[in-house]
Simulated scan of single mutants.
Amino acid sequence: MRRRAFLAGAAAASAIPAAAWAEVGAPAFLAAAREPSGAFALIGLGPEGGEAFRVPLPARGHAAAAHPLRAEAVAFARRPGTFALVLDCRTGAVRRRLEAPEGRHFYGHGAYLGGGTVLATTENDFAAGEGVLGLWDAHGGYRRMGEWRTGGTGPHEVVRLPGTEVLAVANGGIRTHPATGRRKLNLAVMRPNLAFLRDGAAEEVVELGEGMRLASIRHLAARRDGTVAMALQWQGEEGEARALLALHRRGGGAPRLLEDPATQGAMRGYGGSVAFSGDGARVAVTGPRGGLAQVFPVAGGPAGIVRRPDICGVAPAGAGLAFTDGRGGILHPGGARRAGVAWDNHLVPVGPG
């Protein structure tokens, strides 16, 4: 699958008849949640956390990909899930059920390319122990088009760099196999990396350094200038207070690690989600196990701390940030509110990007 296919699809994107996001309450975010009944749903939220729509899910969701033009979202099962649902957010209908090919499973994330005509999904080629991006024709009924190698093991999140067709992939470095569930099979030799892919080729592959080899790169956010933030999960000894946030821009040398000495131990080695503020001046990493988020000035300086039990979801909101937690809390620049659901890990912004 090459660039000319993206461009041809993008030119035809406007011909696809579907509801616009404005027709479903103009949500600012998408989030998976567990309802009090134990059922699961994907919920659209307004800028201050009000519910715009709710679509049932058959099992626990992890994250979603919001189509840049249509009121359509792809909800991903928690890894090692083998399905993803293409949802009509206006009617609640399931337009397509994407099944991972034999020998693959999804990792819970995806991103659109080509003006919304191609969906890329992070997947595990578990026999080979290698990461792949599955490519799906979002213009043609989400037909499987092929796949690209990610240049690493255990790719978790993928994001498109704003204004480009470059994909940043968090190759977490951890090998797993469905036969052994979520057991980590290669910690002694794991090598996580951040890979930048264009047209299936790796333009740059970055590692954090030997001292951070056990920091699995899991979640990503991209700023408008192409700077990528990485949320890390430490696989070394419990209690080791390591940085859980790194920044990198293509061609910019080694990644820059950010940590707050006063709260690093309280993060308990686990970065749950990451986002830049709406104005791009700050970057946040959440620590659900420790009940806090660290918010760093990108230009440098001490971190601000947000404390909420089980805080995990984070996304840009206005010039600032919005957060969600596993107890139904929603914190936004204008205040806070609580929903009658338990939010899952991620808060996904809706918009063209």
Rank of each mutant, 00 (worst) to 15 (best):
V283E: 02
A303C: 09
V274K: 07
V283R: 02
T286F: 07
A322H: 02
M267K: 04
A322I: 01
Q294P: 00
G318T: 13
R256M: 08
G280V: 03
F323P: 01
G253L: 08
G300K: 07
G313K: 10
G300D: 04
A303W: 04
A315R: 04
R307S: 15
V274C: 07
A303S: 14
V306A: 13
R308T: 05
R250D: 00
L257Q: 11
V306E: 15
R282P: 01
Q294D: 02
V298P: 06
D310F: 09
D325P: 10
M267Y: 14
Y270K: 01
G304Q: 15
G290D: 09
S277K: 01
P288W: 09
P261M: 06
G301D: 09
R307E: 15
D310H: 13
V314H: 01
C312T: 13
F296C: 05
C312P: 01
A281L: 10
F296E: 07
G304A: 15
D260C: 11
L258M: 06
V306D: 12
R282D: 11
T263G: 00
A319C: 00
D310Q: 15
I305V: 15
F296L: 10
D310S: 15
L257P: 13
G271P: 09
A293F: 03
G278I: 00
A262V: 10
G290I: 11
V274T: 02
D310G: 10
D279W: 07
R256A: 15
A254I: 04
A266H: 08
A262S: 13
S273F: 06
E259I: 04
P255A: 09
L258S: 00
A281I: 01
L258E: 03
G301Q: 09
S273T: 08
A266K: 12
